[in-house]
Nucleic acid binder design. Structure first.
Lengths: 198, 198
DNA sequence: TCGCTATGTCAACCGCGGTTGACATAGCTC
DNA sequence: GAGCTATGTCAACCGCGGTTGACATAGCGA
């Protein structure tokens, strides 16, 4: 992660007074810390330090820890949005993506760790749910369309998340026939959800 | 919640002095609290209170918070749930379980929440990602059997985990037709994975 | 130049919660 | 009953960390 390239100037030449830059530095540091440590273990003082700012600025610019988390969560989702998938190849595309190695996209992985940690903390689970609804579920729902789109979007999102978790904890790359079977099975699962309810 | 049926006698008739009973009460309360709240959010005072004991006894009987967690983890594993699912109704059973929140305190689910929460806490993560594979992936693989069982177990586990996470962050119960559609979709996804690869 | 305000700094506050040791007492042995 | 030990109770300690408000100052407009 090439984070804080803009912050490294801190010791010798203190950053010029720039609220927006500081805000962004804090936000960036927050995303990393929350992703690495989870909501409870991430300390505002550490985040502020890494951002080259003071703790109290977090209150001023965001309001508090929970609000900062919400902002970071929101920001994490922003890159993900409303990609238009080809309906015909959707399942296989996703399945292939999940089968192949993850280290290409470190940023995406970090973002997901963020989500997973958020999901397993009682404090942040509601926040995540909210963000999920707006940023993730809603697009899927619209994309799905049809009768029971909201619920089916839930199921689709669940399956998708499951694959992400699996890929996150996978110890070795899938190769050869193994990979083929994985893709086939995963695509089948996705396809099954895509079919309109009977 | 119907837990601590054995502890409810506390106010009127204090439990007879019995080290082993107290130890077990603490252990039981710990398993529940750690599963519900995760390592960092679970408070020793709460655990002790629910067990009808004093905080300091935790130190005496276990040594500290981390040691208590380890003990709880160990104990969670000791009662193995090598539950044999009916192959015919497997998908629908799982799907229904995921749709309803009433099963939340069921042993198996509680144990898994325990794992999931533990795996996402930096304090306890290292041991547990491994444990998850041993305790979760291996049984599924054996249960599936057949040619490409290992990979298909991965996919099945992934889908399962996805549903679990979804339920973990779900804000309101699914009711009526919503619930039906959820079960149908989820079961379809699971069924798709259960089919041998083409 | 003179303020005024936005930005940044500092130190204290305060509760939470894990840890600790001193003390009380039940239940057993003699 | 006397005394001993295992068990349970109580209160305090202490650091961590989120929060807060008072203060300093850069940068800008008048």
């Amino acid at each position: 992660m090439g984070e804080s390239a803009t912050l490294r100037t801190a010791p010798s030449a203190p950053r010029k007074r720039d609220a927006e830059a500081t805000r962004l530095a804090i936000l960036g540091a927050a995303k990393i810390h929350f992703a690495r440590l989870g909501y409870e273990c991430a300390a505002l003082r550490d985040i502020a330090t890494e951002a080259g700012a003071d703790v109290s600025l977090i209150k001023r610019y965001f309001g508090g820890k929970e609000a900062l988390f919400a902002a970071a969560l929101n920001d994490s989702f922003s890159g993900n949005a409303a990609r238009d998938w080809n309906r015909e190849t959707f399942s296989r595309d996703i399945a292939t993506m999940m089968a192949d190695d993850t280290h290409v996209d470190e940023d995406r992985t970090l973002r997901f760790k963020f989500l997973l940690r958020a999901a397993t903390s009682p404090t942040t689970a509601p926040l995540l749910n909210l963000a999920m609804q707006e940023r993730f579920l809603a697009p899927i729902r619209d994309w799905l369309g049809g009768e029971c789109a909201p619920v089916r979007a839930r199921v689709l999102a669940a399956v998708y998340i499951g694959f992400l978790v699996e890929r996150l904890i996978r110890d070795r790359p899938l190769i050869g026939e193994e990979r083929e079977v994985f893709i086939a099975s995963a695509a089948a699962a996705l396809d099954a959800v895509l079919q309109p309810a009977p």
